[in-house]
């Protein structure tokens, strides 16, 4: 993989009807980094993803890709650099899994959309990676939530973008595939790519990510290596829970009220 541009947030803020959803966020996502974004519901994790993807038009501050403002980059070029997977949404039509994954190649294709050999190879590989090859001919409306998630992950990988932003990619998955997808993201970053992943599973975050960003009320309240960030005090103040830590796991144990 060629040099991976870093994605930079400087004083990013977003207000919607006088409520501050993102508050003065400074973040950098650089080469070879797998970063987990955690935080309670409504903390602004998804908004942060959308801001970093350039999906919020009235965002304050600046999001830049290797020094270039995101809004100045041609949208097609941006799509080749940054891939985004929102929280699970139904697909509008009963497309086949194969065709759905092929949509990930759209940024690389011209108007005619002829899949060349390289495209086909990438799609096949992405489907193998996400373990959906056997579903290729199934229509997406017949899939379970977890299967659909994996199809979307295949779609994400098919774009071959060096930077991946994924909003709860493993939320609907069984334990086997949770591990599988986290490993794939890890490999992606070992090859030089970078990924920022919203998740709720603290153990998974601690295990796979070198860095964890903790959000609360639209702001970042913690950013660093898991051992440092996932302290009892921070988890208590952010989530209002007490955690148990058997064998390096982080397990919510009781509510603090």
């Amino acid at each position: 993989m060629s040099k991976v541009p870093s994605l930079l947030c400087r004083q990013v803020g977003w207000r919607k009807s006088s409520k501050s959803l993102l508050d003065n966020i400074d973040l950098t996502l650089t080469e070879s980094e797998l970063v987990a974004v955690i935080g309670p519901n409504g903390a602004g994790k998804s908004s942060l993803m959308r801001a970093m993807m350039g999906l919020i038009p009235d965002v304050q501050g600046s999001v830049s890709l290797d020094g270039r403002e995101l809004s100045d980059i041609d949208i097609k070029e941006r799509a080749k650099l940054v891939a985004y997977m929102p929280q699970q949404q139904p697909v509008a039509w009963p497309l086949s899994v194969q065709h759905t994954v092929e949509l990930g190649r759209l940024p690389h294709q011209g108007f005619r959309r002829r899949l060349n050999g390289c495209d086909e190879e990438v799609v096949t590989e992405a489907m193998q990676m996400a373990d959906v090859t056997h579903l290729a001919e199934r229509s997406v409306d017949t899939l379970s939530g977890g299967e659909l998630s994996r199809v979307m992950i295949a779609r994400l990988f098919a774009g071959r973008a060096p930077i991946i932003l994924a909003d709860e990619p493993i939320a609907a998955l069984d334990p086997y595939h949770q591990l599988h997808i986290m490993e794939l993201l890890q490999q992606h970053c070992q090859r030089g790519g970078s990924a920022m992943v919203v998740m709720h599973d603290l153990t998974m975050a601690a295990r796979f990510c070198q860095r964890i960003v903790v959000m609360q009320n639209g702001g970042v309240v913690g950013d660093g290596p898991p051992a440092q960030v996932l302290s009892d005090e921070l988890l208590a103040s952010v989530y209002g829970v007490k955690v148990a830590r058997p064998d390096g796991m982080v397990i919510p144990q009781s509510r603090l009220d």
Binding site: R50, M53, L55, V82, Y84, P86, Q89, A92, L103, P107
Partner: peptide, 9 residues
């Protein structure tokens, strides 16, 4: 795939 995904593509 939804509006946001379309934009991201």
């Amino acid at each position: 795939l939804g509006e946001e995904t379309a934009q991201s593509l």
